[in-house]
Design a protein around this nucleic acid. Structure first.
Lengths: 419, 419
DNA sequence: TCAGGTTAGGCACGCATCATGCATAAGTCA
DNA sequence: TGACTTATGCATGATGCGTGCCTAACCTGA
């Protein structure tokens, strides 16, 4: 991996060099424009508390480096119409990837988390970091090849299915990623692409995606639950990701469920994940297919189809009674665990994401009932529990926001460093 | 309550008027001096990144209003010795109270959380807000009467045994405080004493006490567990109190314990609190005394002593086998719940406070074992679990820090408002 | 004890930033 | 169309803060 070209020919340094002065006000202006709390100069002045003159100047500077641009005139409020100011999300792209236990998702993202060229494929994370990351890098190469000339690549954002030490970008003792412990993921990608790289847990990135540009925008205390093969949660406190001391906060998949002894992939018995995760759904569905308890699943199995969580969910939607019971049972079990989480963390919003969220209202209704029935009334008084539509790709969007937010953070702009 | 003197004669407005300019640098200087990360002018400059000139000027201003003072010369590091700068904790006092389910604690605190004139008494919070708060106010009056002339009262800090909406200072649907829901506690105290008032949950205040001036200083992710009559937790994320959306975050006392149907004071069955709290210890101890299972408790009971959690703990320490088993069982149960909390929140420190913490190493050892045996290895890798000595009065200290921190916060200093 | 080096800390100056006032542009409303 | 309101640029002035210089006060080594 050594000896690669540090700076690619024809690629501009990224992000565009901002003036090192006025960092604070520059960021404040940029922030309110980015999340569209302000769209005109007077708006920005009001929101940031900066003088109208300063705002004008900062907008000028940011426009000069291509981060902002003027749009049409906005509606007048009685006098001269203000010109609209817009974040130039097209000023650069971010390479984002979400490595799951059994899959790789990559995409190109603009600076506002809008994805394009999304690509999914099956992959096994257990084959180790060099192989998986090489594949991700190859996919990134394809994305880069398709870029129009002169497009700036601002950075790489990566999600991994395990705990990550955010500062160093290294996995820490990930249970389902043998060989990845302490691996220098950032160094690998930085050497390959010569741009800044950030890595985080995939569930944290989903939470960030929902927080910065999704359903959780504006909330300060959020729990995002991803129900995929496994079950995990991303926590937001004070509007910031709560990663915990080791970066492994959010584990709810391996809490014991009463009266169960099912073996979990983590090695313990009775884990929630072993009962209510996607893998559990598939396992129980297969059992029902073989036992003949479910006509629909039995037929699918007989026809040679694999029985996956998706199969079970589809059968449930088509009225298969046993599948329906399985899905509802899964929702109820998750709800019991979530009730504890709600009591403890007291979020204003719980977002359910991941593959099982495709089960839709059937799942959500049971989940809601289960949570509300077991939580303190106060904690659920204004609590919202919603599904994150799958098409959202919150994880990839979160990866993009991670990169852009870090690059445009005051700390980095005032003292440019790694990357 | 209306018509009371708004500003008492002979009492100065509080806190001393700081200049409205330079608020940010003033606060930064004050902060590093307050938590003693910097004790000399050059130190302050290094820590805050401010110029030595600015630091000198701010120190001058803060000294002029009595918040800082110069001390002796510090050790030289090769050149002229710097003069030490110290926070004048004696520049004012804060009236603090911790209202528990069955008790009132009040004290005088200096601006650094050092308590004096501590006073405890039995009280029943269920008699309602006016009665309880009047009693607190009467105790405060006694404290004020004992103050030297000219002492400035900066504010009132109050802890309550239930969820509190921090911004308004009103209890929200507190389960064990009938009649308090939505009561204007702040208004009551402000009208009575004419100073700013802040109120928070008592467990949050314990966490704040440990965070700002106790065992948790410097940690960013902390869980404080109070095991008193009931069981509750205070959470610290990013070095800030996580209060949750309704201010009721930290509930762990009412999570279901498998295989139990004990009736809890919250009305549900099988709560942790009903099994492992102080009340449960007392209840089970009494049962053992009556049944004769424990000689020590039976004797105490026969002699007419009340069997409290403290009695059981003392018996355990004196070698009473049954009491010992009871205490250990309590620790084990709490440990099981805490293991889930540790997995979910991933703190770097867990502090155990409250009356049951008096059980000491006997309790702590079993608790540690129980937590570590059931948590993810990663989450416990650098986890510390410690006891908060009772004499600490972390709650009262936290109440003092709450008031002083709010009064010396940038927001308040730049735009003085309520109080 | 003294010289040379190092750190503290005050004072004056100058630069840079930001707010204010004024002029102008461009809209609304009667 | 005129009076009013709002937006925006430019010049001006105040203010905050860093820098350079000086003195004070300590150290080390001869």
């Amino acid at each position: 991996m050594r000896g690669m070209d540090e700076v690619r020919p024809g690629r501009e340094p990224s992000p565009p060099a901002l003036p090192a002065e006025h960092v604070e006000s520059l960021v404040r202006v940029l922030d309110v424009v980015r999340d569209t709390t302000a769209t005109t100069r007077p708006d920005i002045a009001r929101r940031t508390g900066l003088g109208r003159n300063v705002v004008s100047d900062r907008v000028r500077q940011l426009s000069a480096v291509g981060l902002l641009t003027e749009g049409d005139l906005a509606r007048s409020t009685g006098g001269r119409s203000p010109r609209q100011v817009r974040f130039r999300a097209e000023a650069g792209v971010v390479l984002v990837a979400d490595v799951g236990a059994t899959s790789i998702e990559v995409a190109l993202s603009d600076l506002a988390g809008n994805l394009s060229h999304t690509h999914d494929e099956i992959a096994d994370v257990t084959v180790g970091p060099t192989e998986v990351l090489s594949r991700v890098a190859a996919l990134f190469d394809e994305l880069i090849a398709a870029l129009p000339d002169g497009t700036r690549v601002w950075g790489v954002g990566l999600g991994l299915p395990g705990p990550v030490e955010f500062e160093t970008g290294r996995p820490v003792a990930p249970p389902i990623m043998p060989g990845w412990d302490g691996y220098g993921v950032r160094e690998f990608m930085a050497a390959r692409f010569g741009v800044p790289v950030w890595i985080d847990n995939d569930v944290n990135l989903m939470a960030l995606g929902e927080l910065r540009g999704g359903l959780a925008a504006g909330h300060r205390d959020v729990v995002l639950v991803k129900v995929g093969t496994g079950i995990g949660a991303g926590l937001v406190s004070h509007g910031l990701l709560h990663r915990g001391a080791q970066g492994c906060a959010g584990d709810i998949g391996h809490t014991a469920v009463r009266g169960s002894t099912a073996l979990c992939r983590c090695g313990q018995h009775g884990c929630l994940e072993a009962l209510a995760g996607g893998a559990a759904l598939a396992r129980d569905g297969l059992a029902m297919a073989i036992a003949g308890t479910s006509p629909a699943l039995a037929r699918a199995h007989a026809e040679g189809h694999e029985i996956s969580a998706e199969t079970v969910i589809r059968a449930a939607h088509h009225g298969d009674v046993s599948s329906r019971a399985l899905v509802i049972d899964s929702a109820r079990l998750l709800g019991e665990a979530l009730a504890r989480v709600v009591n403890f963390f007291n979020p204003s919003l719980v977002v359910i994401g991941g593959g099982v969220a495709a089960a839709g209202d059937l799942y959500l209704a049971e989940l809601r009932q289960s949570v509300i029935g077991r939580s303190l009334p106060l904690a659920t008084r204004t609590l919202d529990i919603i599904l994150s539509p799958l098409a959202d790709r919150a994880g990839l969007r979160g990866a993009a926001f991670m990169v852009v937010d870090e690059l445009l953070s005051p700390a980095r702009l005032s003292a440019p460093s790694h990357g």
